[in-house]
Amino acid sequence: MQIFVKTLTGKTITLEVEPSDTIENVKAKIQDKEGIPPDQQRSIFAGKQLEDGRTLSDYNIQKESTLHLVLR
């Protein structure tokens, strides 16, 4: 499925993911596309910070959902 990741600069990245993917996985995909190390990424969805060990389905993130990426 496709999800979108919006950065603070307003750029939107499209990722191909599975509901079973962990947040860690997703951060690795963002690193592949953007070169941002996962330890600098904070992902926010529906106002909640997403934890690395959880999966997209844990957070009820579905296709075409938009995550927000904040850098630390």
Rank of each mutant, 00 (worst) to 15 (best):
L50S: 01
D58H: 10
E24H: 11
V26S: 00
M1K: 03
K11R: 11
P38Q: 12
Q40F: 10
I30G: 02
G47I: 04
I3D: 01
I23V: 09
N25Y: 11
L56Y: 03
E51Q: 10
D21W: 12
T55E: 01
Q31R: 12
S43V: 15
S43H: 15
K63C: 05
L15G: 00
Q40E: 12
D52V: 06
T7R: 04
S43C: 15
D52R: 03
N25H: 11
V17S: 00
V70K: 07
K11N: 09
L15R: 00
H68F: 14
I23H: 01
K33I: 14
V5R: 00
I30F: 05
I30M: 04
G53E: 09
I30E: 00
D21K: 00
T66M: 08
L8W: 15
I44G: 04
E18F: 14
V26L: 12
L8R: 10
P38C: 09
K48W: 08
H68D: 08
E16M: 13
Q40K: 12
K48T: 12
L56R: 00
L8I: 12
I3H: 01
K6T: 10
L71F: 08
E64R: 07
V17I: 03
Q2I: 15
S65F: 05
N60K: 08
F4Q: 04
K11V: 10
V17M: 03
S43K: 06
K29L: 10
L69I: 09
A46F: 15
I44W: 14
E51T: 04
T12H: 06
T7C: 10
I36N: 05
V5E: 02
I13K: 00
G47Y: 05
H68E: 12
L50M: 06
I61Q: 02
L69S: 02
R54N: 09
I61W: 01
T14E: 07
Q40N: 10
K63F: 06
T66S: 04
A28F: 11
E64N: 15
S43A: 15
E18Q: 12
T12K: 06
I36W: 14
T14G: 05
G47Q: 05
S20E: 09
P37W: 13
V70A: 08
R54T: 05
T55F: 04
R54C: 11
D52A: 06
I30H: 01
K27Y: 10
G35D: 04
I36V: 09
E18V: 13
K27C: 08
G35C: 05
Q31K: 10
T55D: 02
T7G: 06
I61D: 02
E51L: 11
P37S: 10
S65I: 04
T9A: 11
K48S: 09
N25W: 09
T7N: 05
K33H: 11
E51I: 09
K11A: 08
K63I: 06
S20G: 11
S20A: 07
K6C: 15
Q41R: 06
V70W: 07
M1H: 03
L15A: 01
N25Q: 14
D52W: 05
G35N: 07
K33L: 14
R54P: 03
I23C: 02
K6P: 03
E51M: 10
I13C: 02
Q31G: 09
Q49R: 10
E18N: 12
G35H: 07
L8M: 13
V70F: 10
L56G: 01
T22S: 07
Q40H: 13
I30T: 02
P19N: 05
D21M: 10
S65V: 06
N60I: 03
D32S: 11
E51D: 10
K33S: 11
G35F: 05
L8Q: 13
T9F: 13
S57G: 09
Y59Q: 03
L69Y: 02
S43N: 12
I3Q: 01
M1D: 03
K63M: 10
T55K: 10
E16H: 10
V70T: 08
K33V: 13
T9R: 10
S57F: 10
E18W: 12
L56C: 01
T7H: 04
L69T: 02
D52L: 05
L71H: 09
E34Q: 07
Q41V: 15
I44E: 08
R72E: 12
V17Q: 00
F45L: 06
N25E: 12
N25V: 14
L69G: 02
E64P: 00
K11P: 04
Q62C: 04
P38G: 09
I3S: 00
G47S: 05
E18Y: 15
Q2A: 07
M1L: 06
G35V: 03
T66L: 09
S43E: 10
L71D: 08
Q49F: 15
M1F: 15
S20V: 05
D52Q: 04
G53K: 11
A28W: 11
Y59E: 02
P37C: 08
G53I: 06
F45C: 10
S65W: 04
S20R: 08
P19W: 05
D58E: 10
L8N: 13
T14V: 13
Q62N: 08
M1I: 11
Q62W: 06
M1P: 00
D21F: 07
D58K: 00
I44S: 06
A28E: 09
E18R: 14
L8C: 15
T55V: 05
K6I: 14
Q40T: 10
E24C: 07
V26T: 02
L50D: 03
S57K: 12
D58S: 13
E16W: 14
K11F: 09
K29Q: 07
V5I: 13
K11T: 09
A28M: 14
T7M: 15
R72G: 11
T66I: 13
K11M: 09
T14H: 05
F4P: 02
M1N: 02
Q40G: 10
D21L: 05
E16Q: 11
T9I: 07
L71P: 11
T66R: 04
G53Y: 12
P38H: 12
R72C: 11
E18H: 14
I23T: 03
T9P: 03
A46W: 14
Q49C: 15
P19E: 07
A28Q: 13
G35R: 05
D52S: 07
V17E: 00
D58T: 03
K6E: 07
E16K: 09
I61H: 01
V17N: 00
V17Y: 04
T12E: 04
D21A: 06
K6S: 06
E18C: 10
S20F: 09
K48A: 11
T14C: 07
Q49H: 13
Q41G: 06
E34G: 08
K6W: 05
L71Q: 11
S20K: 07
K63W: 07
A46H: 13
A28I: 13
N25D: 11
I61A: 02
L56T: 01
I30Y: 03
I30K: 02
L67W: 00
V17T: 01
Q40D: 10
T9H: 12
F45D: 04
I3T: 00
G10L: 01
K29F: 04
K27W: 10
E64S: 09
N60S: 07
P38Y: 13
E34H: 11
G35A: 05
Y59F: 04
I44P: 02
R42F: 15
R42V: 15
S43P: 15
Q31E: 09
E16N: 11
V70G: 06
G47T: 05
Q2W: 11
D39S: 13
V17W: 03
I3M: 01
E34S: 13
V5D: 03
T66Y: 08
T55L: 07
S57H: 08
V26N: 00
L50E: 01
V26Y: 04
R54E: 03
E64M: 11
T66F: 07
L50V: 03
T7L: 15
L15S: 01
T22C: 02
K6Y: 05
Q41I: 15
L15T: 00
V26F: 04
